[in-house]
Amino acid sequence: MANYNIIKKTKGDIVFDVVNTIFMLALVFITLYPMYYVLCASFSNNVKLLANPGALWYPQGFNLGAYKLAFKHPLLLSGYKNILIVLGVSLPINIILTLFCGYFLAAKRVLFKKPILAIIMFTMFFNGGMIPTYLNVRSLGLFNSLWALILPGAMSVYNAIICKTAIEGIPDSLTESAYIDGANDILIIFRIILPLIMPTIAVLLLYYGIGHWNSWFSASLYIQDNTKLPIQNVLRAVLIANSNILNSAATEDDQINQFAETIKYSAIVISTVPVLFLYPFLQKYFVKGALIGAVKG
């Protein structure tokens, strides 16, 4: 019979495991409880919720009124529509530009590569500032348009560097053989490079998607029409700005006051759930893609 060396834990190891387990459970509780609180509050009765200022372990008087009001409210629905339009248009532009830039950065023999690379890297650390950007958006005719949320941040240099490192991991023999067979750069990018770095592309999609979904500042600068605001700006109006935007489009029976508190939590759930559902599908690519595209020293 094979002899197995059984390592016996010392008292110090046992104490460390116990303390470490307690610490991790406490950390998980601190992380998840705010989300659980928001979920319970969103299903609670407005009056009973206000009467219970402490910890919340279950909905106080189960009520779906806040969700019914939220889903039929025009600004919350238009906010969802606008952010979906922004994501649907932005993500292909983001990925294509990032892929092209990463391919250029990874190329070994390119004319004027060093000065062009210096200019690209300069934009990573310095920009014109908020006022010049605002004036630029107005002069280009993008003001009060969803294009103002799409074009100014169409590519991240940081993400391009991640893409560049992933492309550098592909053997040169593949691209060289493609050149010999008559393929051009566009064909190489989409038929060879793209399929081989799909884990990195999935991570970049997650980075760009979360960035667009959580962004609210650009819309507050460039969008004047409330019906063009993305979901995060509507959520901000509900949570911070005393629901001024929401009240401006309230229904005739003015049900907002009946759910003044719970509608805030339901709006948070509505704006968060899509990201929570999307992440598990991309999680399997996340670690692999991040490691493949990690910046080399």
Rank of each mutant, 00 (worst) to 15 (best):
residue 74 P to S: 00
residue 196 L to R: 13
residue 195 P to M: 11
residue 123 T to W: 10
residue 47 V to S: 13
residue 230 P to F: 04
residue 171 P to W: 06
residue 90 S to A: 15
residue 101 C to D: 01
residue 91 L to N: 00
residue 22 I to C: 14
residue 204 L to T: 05
residue 78 S to G: 11
residue 89 V to H: 00
residue 189 I to W: 02
residue 119 I to G: 04
residue 101 C to W: 07
residue 215 S to K: 03
residue 289 G to K: 06
residue 126 F to L: 12
residue 152 P to M: 06
residue 296 K to T: 13
residue 143 F to C: 04
residue 168 E to H: 03
residue 76 L to H: 07
residue 165 T to H: 12
residue 100 F to Y: 11
residue 219 A to V: 01
residue 17 D to I: 12
residue 27 L to C: 13
residue 95 I to Y: 00
residue 253 D to F: 10
residue 170 I to F: 06
residue 165 T to F: 13
residue 148 A to K: 04
residue 187 L to K: 14
residue 18 V to A: 13
residue 203 V to L: 08
residue 173 S to G: 06
residue 128 G to S: 14
residue 39 L to T: 10
residue 131 I to R: 04
residue 20 N to H: 11
residue 290 A to W: 03
residue 61 G to C: 10
residue 225 D to R: 08
residue 133 T to P: 06
residue 274 P to N: 07
residue 257 N to Y: 11
residue 204 L to H: 01
residue 187 L to T: 15
residue 167 I to W: 00
residue 230 P to S: 12
residue 176 E to R: 02
residue 70 A to Y: 01
residue 92 P to Q: 09
residue 284 K to H: 03
residue 218 S to M: 10
residue 257 N to E: 14
residue 46 N to Q: 10
residue 109 R to Q: 14
residue 63 N to S: 07
residue 133 T to H: 01
residue 249 A to K: 09
residue 203 V to C: 01
residue 171 P to N: 00
residue 281 F to Q: 11
residue 272 T to Q: 03
residue 125 F to A: 14
residue 114 K to D: 14
residue 197 I to C: 08
residue 156 S to G: 05
residue 131 I to F: 08
residue 246 L to V: 12
residue 81 K to E: 11
residue 194 L to F: 12
residue 113 K to G: 04
residue 271 S to A: 15
residue 5 N to L: 14
residue 62 F to H: 05
residue 34 P to F: 08
residue 88 G to F: 10
residue 227 T to F: 13
residue 216 W to H: 09
residue 57 W to P: 01
residue 203 V to Q: 02
residue 56 L to T: 10
residue 127 N to C: 05
residue 240 I to D: 11
residue 243 S to E: 09
residue 262 T to N: 02
residue 93 I to D: 06
residue 97 L to N: 02
residue 205 L to T: 06
residue 4 Y to Q: 15
residue 229 L to E: 08
residue 68 K to W: 03
residue 213 W to N: 01
residue 38 V to W: 00
residue 23 F to Y: 14
residue 264 K to R: 13
residue 270 I to M: 09
residue 10 T to W: 01
residue 157 V to F: 10
residue 164 K to P: 02
residue 148 A to C: 11
residue 290 A to I: 12
residue 119 I to Q: 05
residue 87 L to A: 09
residue 12 G to T: 11
residue 232 Q to D: 10
residue 71 F to A: 13
residue 121 M to Q: 15
residue 257 N to S: 14
residue 187 L to S: 13
residue 73 H to N: 10
residue 243 S to K: 07
residue 211 G to D: 02
residue 249 A to L: 10
residue 49 L to W: 00
residue 246 L to I: 15
residue 90 S to M: 02
residue 28 V to T: 07
residue 79 G to D: 05
residue 105 L to Q: 09
residue 163 C to G: 02
residue 167 I to T: 02
residue 32 L to I: 15
residue 192 I to Q: 00
residue 223 I to S: 05
residue 279 Y to V: 15
residue 215 S to N: 14
residue 202 A to M: 14
residue 34 P to S: 10
residue 273 V to Y: 07
